[in-house]
């Protein structure tokens, strides 16, 4: 019996000693890379904090914040009024922090000769009114449309800015993340998809939309039509000087901006451009 007690006491001690401060981030897969990079950078300079990142979708991030099961909700869209109401009802006051800007490039397979589409053409393609690349000046191929899951902020941005709330045709394939959209497009000649700016590399081709190429510049100028801010929501503004405060203001520092840029997003504040 005595041994048991000793073991229990030791367990409790280990438990209490090793209780680190933690920051729990939940939400969008689009904001995910920023959150992950911030988390690792933050943990490398603050050894006593464990930052965890779940990428389960903007909606889930909001839900977690409302239920106080996370400290930061990473969201690629703004909170909806229902979510606001629910959080206030739960005693949670959401505060938005815009941590980066993002464009939503329309991507196709690099072998696709089409270079430019108008927003209306994209809408028609996704509604199922245009089903062949021939109709928009490409080769004779059946278009394979790829969309993000309906739970994602990326989908809602696309739905609002491109679809103008029209319904996406039922043939459309839904995938769970930006990376998966790119993976589907890079392996499918006839595919069209949309993903965050940070997810475009040389294995896919970003199209001009209404004649404007998605780039950091056109996004921050606001000329590229499908662009949006990326948010992190906290419950009230965090206590100054706390770990959470330092984390949520990271994007304003030079290093934070460099990380945002390095991953392929557009920093909100413009810091001096050095080329090398």
């Amino acid at each position: 019996m005595k041994k048991m007690f000793l073991i229990i006491i030791m367990l409790v001690m280990v438990f209490s000693l090793s209780a680190k401060d933690k920051i729990v981030i939940d939400g969008s897969t689009t904001v995910g890379p920023i959150a992950k990079a911030f988390a690792e950078y933050f943990m490398s300079i603050n050894k006593d904090v464990n930052v965890t990142v779940s990428e389960s979708g903007s909606g889930n991030g909001a839900k977690s914040l409302v239920n106080s099961t996370c400290n930061i909700a990473a969201m690629s869209r703004f909170m909806k009024d229902k979510e606001f109401k629910a959080s206030v009802a739960n005693g949670v006051m959401p505060v938005a922090h815009v941590i980066a800007l993002d464009g939503l490039p329309i991507i196709v397979h690099p072998s696709n000769p089409v270079k430019n589409l108008s927003v209306k053409q994209i809408r028609d393609i996704y509604m199922g009114n245009i089903t062949n690349w021939k109709a928009v000046g490409g080769p004779d191929m059946k278009i394979v449309t790829i969309s993000r899951d309906t739970n994602s902020g990326t989908y809602e941005t696309f739905h609002k800015l491109v679809m103008k709330k029209q319904k996406i045709g039922k043939k459309c394939e839904y995938v769970g993340s930006n990376g998966a959209v790119r993976a589907r497009v890079q392996s499918t000649n006839a595919a069209i998809g949309y993903a965050g700016l940070g997810f475009v590399d040389n294995t896919v081709k970003a199209l001009k939309v209404n004649g404007i190429y998605p780039s950091k510049k056109t996004v921050s100028l606001g000329t590229y039509p499908i662009a949006r801010p990326l948010y992190m929501f906290t419950n009230t503004y965090p206590k100054m000087g706390s770990n959470l405060y330092r984390f949520i203001t990271l994007h304003l520092s030079k290093n934070g901006q460099e990380i945002v840029k390095g991953i392929g997003f557009v920093p909100v504040t413009n810091y001096k451009k050095t080329r090398r």
Partner: peptide, 8 residues
């Protein structure tokens, strides 16, 4: 993402 956890 998360750091390796200690037992407690």
């Amino acid at each position: 993402v998360g750091s390796p956890l200690s037992f407690g």
